[in-house]
Amino acid sequence: MTYHLRQAWLAMRGNLTATLATLTTMVLALVMLGFVVLLTLNVDRALSQLESQVEVAAFLRDGADTERILSSIQDLPQVREATVVRKDAVLAEMQRDYPYVREAAELAGNPFPDTLRVRVARVADTTTVAGAVRKLDGVESVEYGAGYVERAARVLDAVRVAGYVLVALLLAGTLFNILNAVRVAMYARRAEINVMRLLGATRGFIRLPYLIEGLLLGVLGAALAGALLVPGYEALASRLTVLVPSLPMLQDRAVLAQLVGTLAGLGVLVGLVGSVVASGRYLRELE
């Protein structure tokens, strides 16, 4: 095994340019993939938070039967929570959030109606619930903020697909680089390989140094990607948390460790597949 490790090291050192090119694309691909996954995880968290805050607001006419409206809405299976906020409470809320409302209210009185606030179990049911609320007697108008959540989800999907396509292209580039690096390494040692074959070396024996080379490139690429990704992401996350405190950034070390582990597995897989294919093909060409 020491012999094969040494041969793998010599092959990598002997073709330094090819080794570095392979390593660079692999690190790029894995870092990109890590960022796309982290972006997705974070945007999913943000969307979940937004979804939990989406509510249907129904503005009631003066004199509406609030008890009947409330009980009709609470009977709907999609409804998680429903409350009626009296017009005085609405004014108090508005004055708290927007101090200038106080002056307007002093001049023109309380302009706000009693308001029914409904939270749904799933954001997808918002439109259905809003439609049901609108049909109730005593409801003046209905507003709900699901639209921007749906739009954000669509944008995220597009970003996610574009990210994964880019990562797939980079991984394919890495694979081709490994194919090329192994081929160059084998070509450089063709005399030795020829002697090995004539002396009765098995294909496995001849290929082992190149499989180790692929494996080492995968492990090294994943280690470098992890070393760039984790501190880079943590710095970005802590800065964003300061800038936008309401953003629920993922900062769970266990999730990050799992992500780095997955990237390492992927790096090793790409490295091994590349070297298995390249060395097998080269030996077949010799036969």
Binding site: V195, L198, L199, G200, A201, R203
Partner: peptide, 18 residues
């Protein structure tokens, strides 16, 4: 094939030493 070649010693004109 590899096992077969182990039963044969081969010498070339250009010796093919490493």
């Amino acid at each position: 094939t590899a096992m077969h070649r182990r039963r044969i010693g081969m010498i070339f004109q250009d010796n093919q030493l490493l």
